[in-house]
Design a protein around this nucleic acid. Structure first.
Lengths: 150, 150
DNA sequence: TTAAGTGCAAAAGCTTTGCGGGTAG
DNA sequence: CTACCCGCAAAGCTTTTGCACTTAA
């Protein structure tokens, strides 16, 4: 992620904490920095590994709780796709995903044309649409080469 | 699900089993019928409950194993969206979903316009797209009324 | 000071695995 | 007959919860 964006996100974090009168702890800063530094849409466990390097004694529980908190503050996003574990995403603006059906890797897609797909008429079922996301499924580079050599 | 479609799906199941020389057991038939009969994109546990009614002694393990097998045979689909449990879908053809961000309910969307969204250029990352799905997020009827009365 | 956060241990929810006995083809 | 399936129990992985101690504001 761009250094400038990171810096601003961290400043936003500090401000949101001040506004709400909640402590900006070492752990929280480190966990936010870890997500901002990973481009792999890490699972909570992957974030835990990364953070453990900087704060050796940190607990998994704190990572889970903090990821939830950062998500609630709008500082990070959840990547919604099938798979055993939830994945987190530093990119909070509208974007789409390539999802590998073999290894569950998630790659960002930025394409304005996808931000304006036709919204179906959902008045019959009483559903209110606020948001949408396009998922492209297929095979990533790694898994493609693996399938070629059986 | 339409009775005719159900009947044909069950026939297809019998034939696939014969072709592959694998037994079409009572349990498998019942599990397939259960998924075809539920329009709620049931979790494995919901399928288990439904099947238990017809086959009182059936085990969760068999339900999990069979859902996997039916998926591998292309007889049912997995609904890919964030949430703790995997959900199964009798509709195996291209379609899209409304996902409630409050209760995780999944509702089918059939809209041809969504079947032809622009496919982004993924040659740079070496990803081969085979498929896509649009997810509309928002609030379902139930959760909307709940939020109105806090 | 004091409300909130942290770590630990334990539990909960979903799913998979190993194994002995049973059953469809 | 024989390969495959079934149910049971146990374990695995991700995530949540309760509680005593610590820390940021």
């Amino acid at each position: 992620m761009d250094t400038d964006v990171k810096r601003r996100r961290l400043q936003l974090f500090e401000q949101l904490c001040r506004d709400r009168g909640i402590p900006a702890t070492v752990q929280r800063r480190a966990i936010l920095e870890a997500v901002l530094g990973l481009t792999t849409h890490p699972t909570a466990d992957a974030v835990f590994s990364e953070v453990s390097r900087r704060i050796p004694g940190v607990s998994r529980t704190t990572v889970y709780r903090t990821l939830d908190a950062l998500f609630a503050m709008g500082l990070i996003a959840k990547a919604s796709h099938a798979g055993s574990a939830v994945r987190y995403d530093p990119n909070t603006s509208a974007h789409h995903h390539l999802v590998c059906r073999n290894c569950d890797a998630v790659i960002d897609v930025i394409d304005e044309r996808l931000d304006h797909v036709p919204v179906p008429d959902t008045s019959l079922v009483g559903f209110v649409v606020t948001d949408h996301q396009v998922q492209f499924r297929g095979l990533c580079k790694n898994c493609r080469t693996k399938e070629d050599e059986p």
